[in-house]
Computed example of a mutant assay.
Amino acid sequence: MRSLHLLAIVLAAGFACSAASAADVDGKAQPGVRDVFNQVQQNAWYLPTTDHVAKLFVTEIGQGSPVVFLHGGPGRDFHYIIDALRPQLERHAFVLYDQRGSVLSPVPAGTEGKLTMRQMVDDLEALRVALGRDRLVLFGHSFGSLLAMAYYRAHPSHVERLVLAGSLPPVMDKAMSDAYDKALDQRETAMMSREDAIARALAEAGLPSDKGRDTPRQARMRLRIRYNAPLDLVHVERWRQLTSGGIYYNHAAGAAIAASMPAWDVRPAIAAHPVPITVIQGDSDYLDPSARSWSALAKAGKIRLHVIRDAGHCAWIDQPRAFAEALRDGLDGH
């Protein structure tokens, strides 16, 4: 169906979010978490997949009750979320892992095209077993929200709660195809057409007026300003806080996984096996502005919805305080 095809293209392009800063939402360094990237290295281990095809890179940061983070992409890595987690690190230990086929969890060369969503779900179940947890708290961003929903549908008894940020809709079927395709394309075009904001950011960066004179470093900066920031952020001027593509993303893996996604509907799982679910969405998130597709479930009291005003797909960069408060509520509330 065309909507799933277009969505696969969007997902396979890779999401380009990083974190607001190495400080908390007040701009002050938090005690006890300054060494967070050392924690990433010190706590790292590999989890063999059950089919023995790959090894998943796994690590942990923070302290307290565990939360498994599911990164976007597919085919990206987990590092872009780390600083956004800093306000929560005194209360939660975040288990971070690169999904199969991603940067730190590669598959044998030439086999990326065989990757599927089903494998992503199976790998998450293997991680649950390895962690010795009966039930998981899952925090998914972007494609990670879809993986969280897929795991919940497959293993509802092993889910304790879900927090979905920059989320995809709760249902995607043939009846939605054309309308979703058209709306998604229009939203992307609108975000990418903010020429005044882009021009100001390019000028502030001091890039040559003729892009043909760019150094390799300047060319990378221009790409982030012209294409990454306008799609993911309301505040384009914060482009420096983004990471994107390149070494952070395996395009072949992302394309294969995105293409394997079937239609989905998480509503039966919510009805049969209710768990606390929180959706955190920017009001300008191009995937689903203000999480409108979740509004009926929110009105019915099935999920909790936080709409972050003046924010896009990477809401923690646009509005760090509001995002931190919403994430804390999702992890600790109701």
Rank of each mutant, 00 (worst) to 15 (best):
Y227H: 10
D173I: 00
R153F: 07
R213T: 05
D310H: 08
V40D: 14
V25G: 14
N250M: 08
L11F: 14
R91Q: 07
F69D: 12
P208Y: 00
V67A: 10
G32Q: 10
Q39D: 15
V58S: 10
D77G: 00
L89D: 01
T243M: 11
Q241E: 13
P262S: 05
R304W: 06
D283F: 07
R187V: 03
D196L: 08
A130D: 14
R217G: 05
A154G: 00
V159D: 04
F143H: 06
G32R: 02
F139R: 01
S260E: 09
Y151S: 03
H141F: 08
S193I: 04
T189G: 08
Q39N: 09
F94E: 01
S3P: 14
L85C: 10
R224S: 13
Q319H: 05
L231C: 10
I303G: 07
G144S: 12
P106W: 01
L305T: 09
L47Q: 09
G72Q: 09
A253Y: 08
S102D: 07
I247H: 12
Q319W: 01
R304C: 09
M1Q: 15
Q186F: 04
T116C: 06
D329W: 15
E125Q: 12
V25M: 14
W239L: 03
R34L: 13
S65M: 11
I247N: 14
N43H: 15
R220P: 04
G110N: 07
Q39W: 03
R200W: 01
P170F: 01
A13L: 15
R91G: 09
K114N: 14
S295N: 06
R292Y: 12
A322S: 13
Q30A: 15
L124P: 01
E90R: 13
G64R: 12
E112C: 07
S295E: 07
P276I: 15
P230F: 12
R100W: 01
E204T: 06
A175N: 12
R213N: 11
D196R: 14
K55W: 13
A109C: 08
G110Q: 03
H334K: 13
A322R: 15
L184C: 08
D329Y: 13
I225K: 02
L56S: 05
T215P: 04
A205P: 01
P289T: 14
R153Q: 14
P31W: 09
Q39S: 08
N228K: 11
I198C: 00
S102H: 05
Q63I: 13
A263T: 03
A175V: 06
W316L: 05
A16Q: 10
D181N: 05
A296T: 15
R86M: 03
P106H: 04
L207M: 06
L11W: 01
A183K: 10
D318N: 04
A8E: 15
R91A: 12
F78T: 00
I81S: 04
L202V: 01
L147Q: 02
P276M: 15
V279S: 10
